[in-house]
Design a protein around this nucleic acid. Sequence first.
RNA 1: CGGCGCGUGGUGGAAUUGGUAUACACAACAGACUUAAAAUCUGUCCCCUUUUAAGGGUUGUCGGUUCGAGUCCGACCGUGCCGACCA
Length: 853
Amino acid sequence: MARYNAQATEKKWQAFWDENKVFATQTRGNAEKYYVLEMFPYPSGRIHMGHVRVYTLGDVIARYKRAKGLDVLHPMGWDAFGMPAENAAIEEGIPPAKWTSDNIATMRLQLKSMGFSYDWSREIATCSPDYYRHEQKMFLDLLEAGLAYRKESMVNWDPVDNTVLANEQVIEGRGWRSGALVERRLLPQWMFRITAYADELLEGLPALDRWPESVRIMQENWIGRSEGMRVNFSLKGRDDHLTVFTTRHDTLFGASFCAIAADHPLAKELASDNPKLNNFIDECNRLGTSEAALEKADKTGFDTGLRALHPFDENRELTVFVANFVLMNYGTGAIFGCPAHDQRDLDFARKYGLDVLPVVCPSSQTDAEFVIADKAFTGNGMIINSAFLNGLRTEDAKRAVAERLESNNQGKTHINYRLRDWGVSRQRYWGCPIPVIHCQDCGIVPVPEIELPVLLPDDVDFDKPGNPLDRHPTWKYVQCPCCDSPARRETDTFDTFVDSSWYFCRYACPNAEMPLDTKAVHAWLPVDQYVGGIEHAILHLLYSRFFMRAMRKCGYVDFDEPFTGLLAQGMVCHDTYRDAQGWLYPEEVERNQKGLLVRRDTQTPVIAGRSESMSKSKKNVVDPETIISAYGADTARLFMLSDSPPERDIEWTESGVDGAWRFVQRIWRMVDEPKFPLAPKNMPAPSHIDGPSLALRRTTHKIISDVTNDIDKFRFNRAVARVRELTNAIGAFEHNDRAGSWAVREALETLVQLIGPMMPHIAEEMWHSLGHDPSLVNHPWPEPDPTLIAAENVTVAVQVNGKLRTTLTLGLNVDPAVAESRALADPTVIASIGGRTVRKIVVVPNRVINVVV
RNA sequence: CGGCGCGUGGUGGAAUUGGUAUACACAACAGACUUAAAAUCUGUCCCCUUUUAAGGGUUGUCGGUUCGAGUCCGACCGUGCCGACCA
């Protein structure tokens, strides 16, 4: 009896798959296509458990769809530009290109050792000129299409990474990567006009019905469409006016002040001869960057001395404040304050003693009893105290106000979005160079297409902070392509989210001379199933949806949505351990004889913290490689699939891995040393099968049906449970006769096929042991026999007044009247009825009979 | 503060989507095999009454709809994630 040797067997089959190009993408023409893609990794050095999970999920889908006879595209590549490579250069003196390609080489080997079914011939790395030259060409197209532009704009500046961050890369006022407090700076930036597609991106969401609801809601909120009005307030003693954005123009008569943002142009103008106002603005800007402080910050304002006139009543003068709670980057950077119906305005009004005039009365109260204390009423209702609006409901009042303001040229209905244009400039070296040239005479000149790619120079130094491209002695000095006079290259590079906004298209045509081969892209795209972390719910997924539309406008494709299905998998968690010295790795901790957690080396006590997602900072990580070398890839893959549904977090436990390992051994023994000889392979079914053998056949086919269903719905944990049931059924089977040995072979072969996508190496080995030629990968998925699934008898629950009293075995689809009389004849049921009158009998066929008395 | 999600045994979780709650595993306990250990196999394993048989209760709490609720509705409690002054 030989123990299953996972390491040798896995290597053997990986080599077989490789040599025979088993996973080469097929295009058979008559088969349906299926594109399954997992988010490509950043080559940080080594794979971690998060990678193992997401790529296992994707691989099960890919192998399953392949077995189902579909043409599957399942590629892998590298999100290879980005700051860690530069940090390595700064800290260890390794050039970013070398650091990155070394990491890719390591991680590629690690992924191969997991046995994933990638078509490696389509591998791409975003840092390769073969990739980024096409990105540069696409940028030129976007530029021409008016979707890329340059703008002097206030940016989020990360003082640690010395770079600009997009709004969504700022989390609680800190850089998403460095964690440094973000400053505001005015810099010329390259922007992508994502706002041009705000409505389209919003309207496309409901059709993405195979996306998680939560992701769609997050994107919806991020786009932040709101219907309202721009309203002009005349300014006393000035010719110009103040434009505010509001969604509650029905409350216009409740206005008691106006407020503008600290960086509103009007505020800046007024501050030029008002030092106190200037001071106040400075204070706001300082606060404006630190969101944590802002949370508790009081609403403060500064009276500019200006007075705005109410649009419907020139005699009403409203003080114009600069206020710290008004944001320049939303709406017009100016508001009118209606304290009775907006909590912020109410807080502000109470602080500065301003009027609070209720103008909307909730339907539950009369206007006489309705008062505003410390809570604003923000709901809809009946308009009061509002001249010509009195008696109207909120919606009608909005319409009436809009009509009157528009006819007086005092306002315009307006749809406002929270979404901002996407700033793509990064002042970094390790990114795709932006292919433009700055000429004193000609301005911004695109690099001519024949000169692409603009290559990154190799000879850069990382001794000083800032952008090495900018400091390079020669790289940026070029001649203007238009006038030949001396000019300078753009030294900004792209945000790496640009790289990942189209890579999924390039997989369809990795060697095309053009950025995209439209025919190939249309053959494979959209991605049928995308798998990745929920952390990309907004950034990557929204950018990709935008880029798809931009590529459509540039004529590359004729569809809008890159990913029609999305599976957002949960994180891999592990217990945390620490002692007085700090966090400890799991392998540094053990249980002593008393069962207490202690350090392995010193035997001193260890505190067990709660389970959290694996992270290097908390040291609660398990290196996949140690698991693979101890148990093999199949065990790791099985563990990732069992127990928890994919979208939920999974708890990595040593005992769970042991359990998975035991299962691998167990199924191996079933073919390596069967309890009795199996029927020869390919033998036709015996003409007569009954008793336990028939029962085993029924189980086998029921489980084919269940597992197929479960994998279709990505309920892999249930699929694993069903497979274990089949294993238990085979293990318990004792019927050593002709029919029995045939049924066992059928069950075993089914078992092997069902675990194929989950544990491909052992499945391949068992398939071979059962006498079949490789590769199982190309063997069709088993089909359940419907006549075996349909049971002839069903167990039906019998309830009296909703309480379970007994169960009956009835024929399938038996006449309800028969079921009824069988139930009423049952002694337990008679006893439960206890002589009471039967009022009603509910019969749910094949499920339940409920006697109501 | 808002949005979204979750709450089922000691643990991870299952429940045909309103129809027999606790599938499948992990852990624990007992036993078999063994000189011993590992491995393997068998059994017990939500709670209460009772030796068993049998009965009663149970899906965070309270209420509602229904012949019937883990599942639907309302309120509350707890918890997690995300967004946060979005006018």
